[in-house]
Structures are given as structure tokens and as C-alpha cells.
Simulated assay, not measured.
Amino acid sequence: MALSDRIPYQAIVDRPKLTLPDGKRIAVWVILNVEEWRIEGAMPRTVLPPPMGQPLLPDVPNWSWHEYGMRAGFWRQHAALTSRGIPVTMAINGNVCRSYPRVAQAGVDAGWEVMGHGFLQGPMHRLEDQRKAIHDAMDTIEAFAGTRPRSWESPGLTETEETLDLLREAGVEYVADWVIDDLPQDIETPHGLITSIPYTVEVNDITVYALQQHDSEVFLSRGKRHFDRLYAEAAENARVMAISIHPYITGVPHRIGALEDLLDYVGGHEGVAWMTASEIGDWYRGQMG
């Protein structure tokens, strides 16, 4: 069976009528991706090209680009989110709990949901033992945070044919890798259902800034337009919107204001339910019976 065949096609216009808690019309969740890039390896993403076209290791400038986010950018985002009382899903590499405990603890202390995001940043396809890496991430986060993650976002949204089964086996109930719909969808595994939570690759600071090289006005206007359309559609049936951010991207001084403006715009509408991944998953499963 092709991996895509595990998620049967559903037209959103045919989905059952869903009702959000307290009469809300749209669920919005913020995903703060907290990752560890090891300086001895090639960087997953770069802002500066290699000198003379020759990649060099250690890649000090591009590693430092990311490291700035962990040392400075994260704290701007933390202030923006906690000051507004917005629930956050912190997608965290398991080893961040050891390498950046100050960052991980700040998320735990804020009451954020901890979402598994691999053990170290890198594609699932490159892992020698995917099961071990998943359990290492889950166990390390659980030992640090005191609760086992119920949700998961694979690094780079990467999966192999066995990833979903291994995640469910490890206790994951909700996964954000499948950017296929504006409502959750259940996926069968040999260990029980795992539910896809609507994520985003477009209202995502990596895409807008690092890949498409847009300025902050595009991030803000895209987020507003995305929200406006989902909010309008939610008059007929509930919708879910994701906002995905990274400390080294929207945590920098010249971009944090656009993120704050988007949060204020969304939060200024009646009927918005700020939720976390597991809250959305639990709501959906409760609605589907």
C-alpha cells in the first residue's frame, strides 16, 4: 500500500458538522519549533552561501544564525505569546532538554504542550533506527517535562512507510506531518488510530522568509488572508488554522513585530479558540464519537 493510501480521500464539503467548545467557530494553534542543530554537521538550512562555493565545516555563520534564535529570538517569542495568554504547542527535539534546558524549562513553566519533534533535527529517512530515535525523543521529553508527549511533528515533516506505526506504538496520538486539510483526520495503524492535526507549510515563517525571501508585510498579510477565509468558511463548519514559527526566523528584531501583529489580529476576532495540538485532537475525537 502506498503511504498516501492510508489516508482515504475526504472532500471538506462532505465532512460532518463539527462544533467547537463554547460556541467558537475556528480553532487556531501556534507551533513554536525548538530545534538543535549540531555545529559539526551540515546545517539543515542556511542564510549565507558557502565562500567561493565550497561548503565548510564547521559552518560557523549558519550555525550561529540558528543559535541566535535559541539565545535571543526564543525569548522575544516567549514574551509575545505568554503576555497574550496564548496556548502554545512547543515542538521540541528531545535533546534540546539536555542542550538547552533553559529554553525547554521556560516552555514547560509556561504550561505549553510539549510536542515530539525528533531527537535531533534531521530527516526521519536518515535514521539508522527510527524506533529508537522516536523512543529516545519521547522518553527524554517525558523525563524532563513530567508528561509524555501526545503529539508529534517529524523534523521537516518527513516520514517513511513505518513512521506512523512507530509513533503510535510509542504513544503518539496526534501528528502534524500531513498538510492535507483544514480539519483533522484519523489514520489507521496496527496500534490504533493516530489523528492528523491540520498544520501549515504556508503560514510558516520558514517558507515565507527563509525559502521565499519575502518581507514581514507578506507574512502578516498572508496570515490575515488565510485567517479571514477560514473564519468566513467556519460559519458553515469548524475550521483549524496553524501558525508555525521558529526562534531564529520570527524571533529576530525586524520580524517579531509582524508576528505580534498577526497574533493580535487573529485574537481580535470573536469566536477564536486558541488551542494546542492535543486539545484539537481531543475535541475532534469527541465530536466524531
Rank of each mutant, 00 (worst) to 15 (best):
N95R: 13
S154A: 11
P49Q: 00
G53C: 05
V60E: 03
G41L: 09
A170E: 06
A238G: 11
T200P: 03
L183T: 01
W29V: 01
L81A: 14
G289E: 09
S64Y: 02
D264A: 08
N93A: 03
H135E: 14
F74K: 07
E142M: 04
E159I: 05
R150P: 13
K24Y: 07
A258Y: 01
M138I: 00
G146F: 10
A170F: 13
G85D: 13
V28A: 04
E202Y: 04
P50A: 05
S196T: 02
P55L: 06
D14Q: 06
P61S: 00
A176Q: 05
A277M: 11
H191Q: 10
M138N: 00
V203E: 06
E159F: 10
E233G: 06
R168T: 05
D129I: 09
R255A: 02
V172Y: 04
N33K: 13
E270I: 04
A80I: 03
D264R: 07
S154D: 04
G53E: 02
Q130L: 15
H78P: 12
Q213A: 00
G223Q: 00
D261W: 01
L263H: 05
R148A: 00
R71Q: 07
E260D: 01
G192P: 14
S151E: 04
W152N: 06
L120G: 09
A80M: 02
G192I: 02
H191W: 09
K224V: 15
I7Q: 03
S221T: 15
L263K: 01
L3Y: 08
E161R: 05
V201P: 14
R102K: 11
A210L: 11
A79E: 15
I7L: 05
M43K: 05
T276Q: 07
E233S: 03
R255H: 02
I256A: 06
P184V: 01
P50K: 09
P51D: 10
A106K: 00
H214S: 14
D165G: 08
A234R: 07
G85V: 08
Q105W: 15
E202I: 05
P247F: 03
A235D: 07
S278D: 03
T89W: 00
N62K: 04
I197Q: 13
D129E: 12
G281N: 10
D282E: 12
R71K: 14
W37K: 08
A210H: 07
E202T: 01
H125W: 12
N62H: 00
P101F: 07
V218E: 11
Q130I: 14
C97M: 14
V172G: 02
V28W: 06
T207G: 00
T207Y: 08
T160K: 09
T189R: 06
E202H: 07
Q77M: 05
D228A: 01
P51T: 08
S99E: 12
W274V: 01
H254D: 04
H269N: 13
D5A: 04
P184Y: 05
R131H: 06
Q212R: 09
L262C: 11
H226A: 15
G257W: 10
E173K: 03
H125Y: 10
S216R: 09
W112P: 12
P184T: 07
E35Q: 02
A238T: 13
A176R: 07
T19I: 06
A210I: 02
G281S: 04
E67M: 03
Q10F: 13
N93M: 00
A273P: 12
K224Q: 11
A2T: 06
R102G: 14
H78G: 12
A110K: 04
W112G: 01
W65F: 13
R148C: 00
I92Q: 12
M90D: 04
Q212L: 15
